[in-house]
Design a binder for these strands. Structure first.
Length: 498
RNA sequence: GCUCCGAUAGCUCAAUGGUAGAGCAGCUGACUCUUAAUCAGUAGGUUGUAGGUUCGAGUCCUACUCGGAGCACCA
């Protein structure tokens, strides 16, 4: 890009850079030895004290108020922000000359002693200033004012498109956005700690798979050149994790990305983070306990994250409410769903706003009705138990209830939070389920999966009774932080190219 | 994929079909405890892209691009 294409503000920044270089200042430093994070430095000056020790802090100028021969700025780092005070008489002439070239957004090191201003704010009185990185493009910092304890922003960085496309700028100017991602890391760390504490082994399984399975979804396809074969990006981790159960790792989990080639909206990103965990010798009732404890641990981790409003994070009474799929759907319909003929289900589906019900299979119809009549009404965390076998090709049959499986889903705020079952470990039954799926696929259902012969071979070697759970990490964090858009919990959400 | 809404200065936003503006940021100057600092001055634009209507288009029409909301899809 030549200078004629740059806007005036960008040209001004480059001119400032040129002046610094002409005066022998290196505008992009290699390192800075800081002694304190800003939050730790502030803690060195307790209430009632007006003078403190020398500190060296480093960060970005997020505000700058020049009064001629003095100036105040706020320096922001990962821990927060701290005011710095610059006074011409306290600084070497060449240092003051550097200061006069600085802009909001510049990254600096500030060395000086802690003081308290007339208005009571803890401040570093700068004696040595080091430019660490010159900003050549203005960051859209908002003016801020604290009114009644609340920070009000004026003319901030508000365009959602630009905030997602330039997440670096969004993060740089919005500490509360950074807080969401600190919360995300703390949450996954707490989940790992919880599972590790139970003796689970964290593993990694293939993302590129010759067959996709473990869920009903359209996959992304790709091609391996050397092998000259199609590969699919996984839609679930499930079938590989259960191969590991066969292999003798009796408690395994994976946190990783799944990929589904579907629409993008408030709750869907084409790649998203899934937690799956499998436990030998456990059935789905054990897994309900695990899920309850895991979600409580995740919520505690989010609640304790600095910058997160703890009052907005849900608290939970355990055990969670438990309802059964068939009776709750029958209650919603006002009649026994299992005795309804298909035509009656179509009629009921139309009454409840299901689109084109006559194109749907019986299990899909029932599922649509369940979503409309039951799922959307669930607010507090609730386990829904025992789904029809047609909807659950990988789950064990329900003991004493033909046609149902030992499966539960956890719902909260109308959204699915977890899906789990007593895993099917009978290879003969599993083959029949796969073949039913293969018939659906042959009939044009591109979400149905085929027969995974290798998985069946593994199961034939003997798979212990196993309980398994899948939890969407992004949606769990959305629920715990009260965010409405999945883009707010994913650092770089999918966007069309600019 | 469908419907509606939107795109104007670095940022946030104005502008009956009739000379494209403001605040902040920038630049120049004043100001040695400020905090949306203040004050004075100044500069900054192919109005998302391409066509069309019109004496004249930021504004009206068409198509396209990108985004938002909703719908569809997503067990």
């Amino acid at each position: 890009m030549n200078n004629e294409e740059l806007s005036q503000v960008l040209l001004d920044r480059r001119a400032s850079l040129d002046r610094l270089v002409a005066n022998g200042v290196a505008p992009f430093a290699y390192a800075y030895e800081r002694t304190h994070l800003t939050a730790d430095a502030r803690a060195l000056l307790p209430d009632g004290t007006d003078a403190g020790p020398a500190v060296r802090i480093a960060g970005r100028f997020v505000s700058l108020r020049s009064k001629g021969k003095t100036a105040f700025a706020h320096v922001s780092d990962a821990s927060g922000r701290l005011q710095a005070y610059f006074r011409k008489d306290d600084m070497a002439a060449d240092q003051w000359a550097v200061f006069e070239e600085l802009h909001v957004g510049d990254i600096v090191g500030v060395a000086g002693t802690l003081m308290r201003t007339r208005t009571g704010e803890v401040t570093v009185q700068c004696t040595e200033l080091t430019l660490l990185a010159k900003t050549l493009r203005p960051l859209p910092f908002a003016k801020e004012q604290v009114v009644d304890g609340e920070t009000r922003r004026y003319s901030g960085f508000a365009d959602p498109e630009q905030r997602y496309r330039q997440r670096y700028a969004d993060l740089a100017v919005h500490p509360e956005v950074r807080a969401n991602f600190y919360a995300r890391a703390r949450m996954t760390s707490a989940i790992r700690g919880f599972l590790d504490g139970l003796g689970y082994l964290e593993v990694e399984t293939p993302v590129l798979q010759p067959l996709y399975g473990g869920a009903a979804a359209r996959p992304f396809t790709t091609h391996h050149n050397a092998l000259d074969m199609p590969l699919y990006l996984r839609i679930a981790d499930e079938l590989y994790l259960k191969r590991l159960i066969v292999g003798g790792f009796d408690r395994v989990y994976e946190i990783g990305h799944d990929f589904r080639n579907e629409g993008i909206d408030r709750t869907h990103n084409p790649e998203f983070t899934m937690l799956e965990f499998y436990e030998s010798f456990a059935d789905y009732t054990v897994m309900m306990d695990r899920v309850e404890q895991l979600i409580v641990a995740a919520a505690d981790a989010v609640r304790s994250t600095p910058g997160i409003d703890a009052a907005t994070v849900p608290t939970f009474a355990t055990p969670f409410r438990r309802i059964e799929w068939v009776p709750s759907l029958s209650a919603g319909l006002g009649r026994d769903v299992m005795s309804m003929i298909d035509a009656d289900l179509v009629t009921a589906a139309m009454e409840h706003g299901v689109e084109k019900p006559n194109t749907l299979s019986r299990p899909k119809l029932m599922d649509e009705l369940f979503q409309a009549l039951v799922e959307r009404t669930i607010t507090t965390p609730t386990f829904v138990l025992d789904y029809p076998v047609e909807l659950s090709p990988l789950a064990k049959p329900k003991r004493g209830m033909p046609g149902l499986t030992e499966r539960f889903e956890l719902f909260a705020e109308g959204r699915e939070m977890a899906n789990a079952f007593s895993e099917l470990n009978d290879p003969i039954d599993q083959r029949q389920r796969f073949e039913a799926q293969a018939r659906l696929k042959a009939a044009g259902d591109d979400e149905a999966t085929g027969v995974d012969e290798d998985y069946l071979r593994a199961m034939e070697y003997g798979m212990p009774p196993t309980g398994g759970v899948g939890i969407g990490i992004d949606r769990l964090l959305m629920y715990l932080t009260g965010t409405q858009h999945i883009r707010d919990v994913i650092l770089f959400p999918a966007m069309r190219p600019e």
